[in-house]
Design a binder for these strands. Structure first.
Lengths: 214, 214
DNA sequence: GTCACTTTGCCATGCACGTTGTACTTTACG
DNA sequence: CGTAAAGTACAACGTGCATGGCAAAGTGAC
C-alpha cells in the first residue's frame, strides 16, 4: 500500500519512523493504557489519521514499537559486549577490567526510554498476546543473553573462568553487575549517583569473579 | 467519620477490608489505569458508592492498597527468613541448606498477587507521588532487605561468611537466588517448571557461597 | 425498637479516548 | 506541470470512566 512499484516512497516513509519514535516515547512514559493516540500523534508531529494509515490499531502499533525497540537495543548491547569482551588481554586483571567496563556499560543504560518500555511490558505481560511477547523475548532479551553466553563459554574454554553452565553463569554476571541497579532505581527510572553505581558494579563483578574464577 | 466514639464500627469495617482485597486483585491484574472503580466494586462485592465513602478517590485507594500489601508481605517474608535463617546448625553444609530453603521460599512467591502489583508499581513509578513511593519502599522492600542484612551480618560475625559489606552481600544473595526467576518469568507471572526453579536456586546459592564463603 | 450511621441503586454529568469517514491539501515522481 | 499517493483537519460516534447527589433500605449499639 505504501509502495510505488516495489519501493516505498522515500520522504513519506519517514512518517512511519516519526510515528514509531513518538510512540516509543509515549508508551515508555505513560504505559500502554494511558498512552493515547492523540498524544502519540502530537509527539510524533503527525495527524492521528496518519497513524491509522500506517497501523491497524493501537495494539498493532504497540507490538511494532516493542519489537523494533528490542531489535535496536539488542544490537547495541551485543555490539558493546563485543567491544568490551571480544578481545581481552592476558591475565586475570585484564579480564576483571573488561568485565567492569562491560558491567558499567550494561548498568548505565544509554537507552533510558527502551528500559522504561521494558517496565511497561513487564506490567502488561498478561495483556500482550503471547505470540507478540514470545517474539519480543526472542529478538530482545534472549538474543542478548545468548551473545553473552557465547563470551562466557569462550572464557571457560580458554581457562579464564572455571567450567560451569555458561547460560547460568552469564545470567549471574548480569544479575550481579546490573541487577542491583534494576531493583534500586527501577530500571534506571530514578536517578542513582554515579559513584554509587560504580561501587555496585565493582562489588558485583568482584563477587562474580570470586564465584567463577578458575 | 467511620468511627463511633473512638472505635470503628465492627461489622461495617469489614467493608473496608473487602474493598482492599478486591482492589488489590484488580490493580494487580489490570494495572492502575485499566482498573476501573466499577470492576473493583464488583470484585469486592460492594457498590461503587461505598468505595467513595471509604476512600477519597482512586489514587488514594491505590496508595492504601500498595501500602497495606507491602506491609503484609514484608512481615511474611521476614518471618520466613527468621524461620530459615534464624537458627542454623553448625557446619557449612547446614548454612548451604538453610540458604537453599530460604532461596526456594523467596523465589516461589506465595503472594502472586502482591508481586503482580509490584510490577505495576514499577511501571507507574513516574506517576506515583514520590512520598507514596518512598513510603512503600520503606515499609516493603527496604525493610525486608534490612532484615536479611541482619542475618548476613550475623553470619559474618560468626565467621560463617567472609567479611564484606553486609548490605551488598544480602542483595547479592537475593539476586542470585531469586533474580533469575524474576527476569525469566516476569516476577512469577508466567509459569516456570518447579524443577527448573529448583535448579536456578541451587546454582544461585552455590555461586553465592563460592563468592562469600569465609 | 429507635436512632445514627452505612450501604446501595440509580441517575447524571462531564470528559477522554479509539476509531472511522470525508473533503481538502501537500508531496514526490515522471 | 500533472497525477496518484499520502497526509491533514475536522467532525462524529459510541463507549467507558471517575465522581457526585439523592432517596431508600439496612444494620449495629443502646
Amino acid at each position: 500500500m505504501t509502495t510505488v512499484g516495489s519501493q516505498p516512497r522515500r520522504g513519506l516513509a519517514d512518517k512511519r519512523r516519526a510515528i514509531l519514535r513518538g510512540a516509543l516515547a509515549v508508551f515508555a512514559r505513560e504505559g500502554y493504557t494511558r498512552a493515547s493516540i492523540d498524544l502519540i500523534a502530537r509527539e510524533a508531529g503527525v495527524s492521528t489519521r496518519t497513524i491509522y494509515n500506517h497501523f491497524r490499531d493501537k495494539a498493532a502499533l504497540f507490538e511494532t514499537v516493542i519489537q523494533e525497540s528490542a531489535q535496536r537495543v539488542a544490537e547495541e548491547q551485543i555490539g558493546e559486549m563485543e567491544r568490551h569482551l571480544g578481545q581481552v588481554a592476558e591475565g586475570p586483571e585484564a579480564l576483571g577490567a573488561a568485565l567492569l567496563a562491560f558491567g558499567r556499560a550494561h548498568a548505565q543504560p544509554t537507552a533510558r526510554e527502551h528500559f522504561a518500555l521494558v517496565r511497561q511490558i513487564q506490567a502488561e505481560v498478561l495483556h500482550i498476546p503471547s505470540e507478540a511477547l514470545e517474539a519480543w523475548q526472542e529478538t530482545g532479551p534472549r538474543r542478548v543473553q545468548q551473545a553473552l553466553t557465547g563470551h562466557v563459554a569462550r572464557f571457560m574454554a580458554e581457562g579464564r573462568l572455571r567450567e560451569a553452565d555458561p547460560h547460568r553463569t552469564a545470567r549471574h554476571l548480569v544479575l550481579l553487575a546490573a541487577g542491583e541497579v534494576t531493583s534500586r532505581s527501577f530500571h534506571g527510572a530514578l536517578p542513582l549517583p554515579r559513584e554509587e553505581l560504580d561501587a555496585i558494579v565493582a562489588t558485583g563483578v568482584d563477587a562474580f569473579l570470586r564465584a567463577y574464577a578458575p
